[in-house]
Every structure is written in structure tokens, then in C-alpha cells.
Design a protein around this nucleic acid. Structure first.
Lengths: 249, 249
DNA sequence: AAAAAATATCAAATATTTTCAAAAAGAGCT
DNA sequence: AGCTCTTTTTGAAAATATTTGATATTTTTT
């Protein structure tokens, strides 16, 4: 196994485990402890890993990204299924808005090669958007700590002057009675405007969001063209004409 | 098989695989390892591939981030010295602008705990700013591929309505004759406005920037309050009242 | 103080770079 | 086309450089 692959393996282990021990790495890679140590030192110099005394290492993630990356892992399959379907709706040349959530982030990789322009207020999407060389407009404004979302009068003004072909928006909570809600009032405000300025509106939700209410309501269930989710049972009372149930594999 | 086709084959392999081994390529192309190595070197020079020890090569993933991180490493000590000094100029409660460069990025960690608001058009600064919980306003606009800098009418409009206590701006090139220049016309435009809207203007430069000109000039040497750099020799002809030479340790 | 872990050192094993001559491919000419 | 001359590409061998495992030494933990 070449060094690069070995180091990747270590990072992979740390993605699922939080801490790995030298023995463990050694066993999986079949090299001497000396080499494992050297690998870890290399990764540490790259800022990817922190070496702990006691023969272990843990992943270094920036505080802010942590919560985002952790959310990316939650219900990954559902989010993947929903966003994969959502991406098929995007046609060449379209001008679309992506909300700042993790489900929306999953969409990005599927847009690769499509000639679209993405507008978003989710600063964490930037890496992924650049990676796939997608034309991007990031809204400007105050950056919300922890979630790196851009809000404020300036962001509002910008979206107010845009007309989207489609928007894809997630929510923290969704109920038939109260509609879609989120935990931040500024995010709610932006969502509200985006929905108004979009020809077609798509709501995305993994099953955990359904049935709960968050603080700030920004839309009614009926404000969308399609509501994309995976769990049929949970949306039984919803308007079935607007529902799209996708299978997670 | 002609060289061109061979190299394409390597890229194809990397499309699906992430890593290819020398043996693998050699087997498929039926040439000597020496030639495979040369092919890889060519591809590397084209920026299409990364050569790894072990004889494998991997597709370069996020060109953008990579180049930023690599630039962060260049002249690290000088940048650190310059930005460390720059940060001492920032007082509690101030409203400052940071340019999108790597030198400016180094400033951020030194702002930890200071009650300042940072405005920037460098999207790559976000992680660092969130990490140290610094109040941040990110300009909105088109995201320039590769460098993740925000530009365009919207960004311009935003900075035009702001009044900064201080701004810290780097450049790609600096000469006494032509002043400060950068490689992107939009970045130059933003810089120009920021300089106008700042009570105090600070230019930052590691020694490699001095003596070279880039495409778009955005300021004269005299447009600043202080010009902070490390290399005394290179700035001998500059107005000494404005110069601050810091030691790298 | 004993045990465990981390660091340092060194020689062997691998990989990479350099060098050089042969082969292949082009370019110009008759 | 056939022939020379030049340039480029290639493979093999030698020279360097890097990676690795083993062992000894120092540091840290218990």
C-alpha cells in the first residue's frame, strides 16, 4: 500500500471513529509502528489530525465546520436520495437558488457539468461549488456564527432583485398545520423572499424534519411546486399531488 | 500507442479511481516505467495530476482550496510577521476590511478576542473567522473560480456604503513607479473603493511582491498610511515615513 | 521506579531522478 | 519514395533520494 493510501485510510478510520489507536492503524495497514507514527506526523503537519499521547489520533475539524460536517452525516442516505432526485429537475442554463442546509449541499455534486448558475446564502457550499466549477453567486451580509449563513439587509436586497428558475429549500421543521419553519429569523426572512422570487419552488426534507415545528415559519406546505422526501408514512395527510417520494437505496 | 493517447488513458483511469499505480499504468500501456513516470510528470506540469510516492497519481481535487492552502505556505514566516504586526493596529470596537489574500488571512487568528467587525470579500477567510468567533460581514457577489473571491456590482455597492476604520490590503505586485497591482480587474476595483472608504489604509507585502507589476493597478504607494513589509533592502527607495519594516523571527 | 510511548539514529529496501545511447518520428532535399 | 540530418521519445543503468523497520535512547505516564 502506498503512503498516500495509507494516510487516507487513517483519515477514513477517523471519520467513523473519533479516535484511532496506533495498533489499530498498524494492523490495518501492515506497516511498522514507526511508519504509522510518521504517517500521523505528516497528517498532523497538514493540519488534518491531532496526535494524542497514548498512541492515538483524532481528526481535526474547524469548530464551525464540525457541526456542518456532522449534520452532513446525519441521515446521509435520505438526504442523498432526496437531493439526487432534486438535481434531475435542474435544466441546462437555469438560475437556481440553494438554501444553506446540508440536504441542499448534497445537490451540488450532481450539478457537475450542468451549465447552471447557483445563488446561495450558505457559505459552506462554496468549497463544493468551486470543486465542480459551478457558476456561483454568494449573497453578502453578516455571517451567522456556527452555520456560516449569510443574512441581513444586504442579502435581502440582493435576492429581492433576482428571479430564479427554481429554488431548493430545506427546513428545520415541517408540519401540515404550520408549514415550514427554521430556527433563525433571518434565514426565514431570506427563504420567504426566495420563494416569492422563484418560478418553481421545491422543498426538501428527510424524514426527521417532518412532524416537528421550529421557531420561525417561512412557508406553507402549499407554497411549493413539489415537496421531495423519502418517508411515505409521515406525509400521509399532505396534498399528494405535490408530493414526491423517493427511495433511498 | 502514442503519448497523447497514453496520457488520456491515465486521466481516464483517474476519473473513476482516485489513485492509479505505476504498475497499473505500465501494464495497460505497455511501456517502460520510465515512460510512465515521464507521462505523469507531464500531466503534473499541466496541473492535471498529482504524483505520489509509491508511483501512483491522483486527480487533483479542489484546485481552488489547494492553491489557497499552498499560497498560505509560501513565505509563511514573512506573512506571519507582517500580519502579526498589522493585527496590533486593530483596536477594540473597530470596523475593518480585510482583502482576500493569504497575508490578510494570517491576521485573523491575532484578532481573537478583540471586539471587532471584519468585512471581507475573501470567502476562504470564513473558516478562520468563524473559528475565532469574529463578527463578520462577507460581501456578496459572483464567486471567482479558483480564488473564491467575491466581486461584481453587488459587492461594490455594499462596500460603497461602508466606512471602515482601517483596511488591510495585499497585492500581487508592488513597484514605486506603478504602485500596487493585482491580477484580477474586479478585485482591483473593490480594493480601490475600500481604500477610498477607509480612514486608515495599510498595505501588506512579503518581499516577493516587491519589484514586480501585476496587471491591474489599484493604488499608488502613497495611498496608504503605512506600508508593512519585512525586507528593508527592497524598499530602499520608498517613502520612509510610511514604511514599517518588521522582523521575521 | 517500572511501563509505555515518543524520538532519534542508522542501515536496508524502495522509489525517483539523472544520464546516455538507441529507436522512432519529423523535416528537408533530391 | 528514398535518403540524410535533426529532434524527440524511449528504455536501461547508474546515481540520488526517500521511505521504512529495527534498535537504542529519551521522555512521559502511571
Amino acid at each position: 500500500m502506498i503512503p498516500y493510501k495509507r494516510r487516507n485510510l487513517i483519515l477514513d478510520l477517523l471519520h467513523s471513529k473519533d479516535i484511532v489507536y496506533l495498533d489499530e492503524i498498524q494492523e490495518k495497514t501492515d506497516v511498522s509502528v514507526a511508519t504509522v507514527r510518521r504517517d500521523l506526523k505528516t497528517l498532523e503537519e497538514e493540519g488534518q489530525v491531532e496526535i494524542l499521547t497514548g498512541g492515538a489520533a483524532k481528526l481535526v475539524v474547524s469548530v464551525a465546520e464540525k457541526s456542518f460536517e456532522e449534520k452532513m452525516k446525519l441521515n446521509k442516505e435520505e438526504k442523498e436520495a432526496v437531493s439526487s432526485y432534486a438535481s434531475t429537475l435542474v435544466k441546462d442554463g437555469q438560475f437556481i437558488f440553494l438554501g444553506p442546509g446540508t440536504t441542499e449541499n448534497h445537490i451540488i455534486k450532481h450539478l457537475k457539468g450542468k451549465n447552471v448558475t447557483v445563488v446561495t446564502n450558505g457559505a459552506f457550499h462554496i468549497d463544493e461549488l468551486l470543486k465542480y466549477k459551478i457558476k456561483t453567486i454568494l449573497l453578502g451580509g453578516s455571517v451567522l456564527t456556527n452555520i456560516a449563513v449569510l443574512v441581513g439587509p444586504s442579502a435581502i436586497k440582493q435576492v429581492s432583485n433576482m428571479n430564479f428558475d427554481k429554488c431548493f429549500i430545506g427546513a428545520s421543521g415541517i408540519t401540515l398545520d404550520n408549514g415550514l419553519s427554521t430556527s433563525n429569523i433571518d434565514v426565514a426572512e431570506i427563504n420567504r423572499i426566495v420563494i416569492e422570487k422563484s418560478k418553481e419552488v421545491y422543498f426538501l426534507a428527510d424524514s426527521t424534519k417532518i412532524g416537528a415545528d421550529s421557531r420561525y415559519v417561512f412557508a406553507d406546505i402549499n407554497d411549493c411546486n413539489k415537496f421531495i422526501t423519502t418517508d411515505k408514512a409521515k406525509v400521509d395527510n399532505f396534498d399528494s399531488k405535490k408530493l414526491i417520494i423517493v427511495e433511498k437505496d
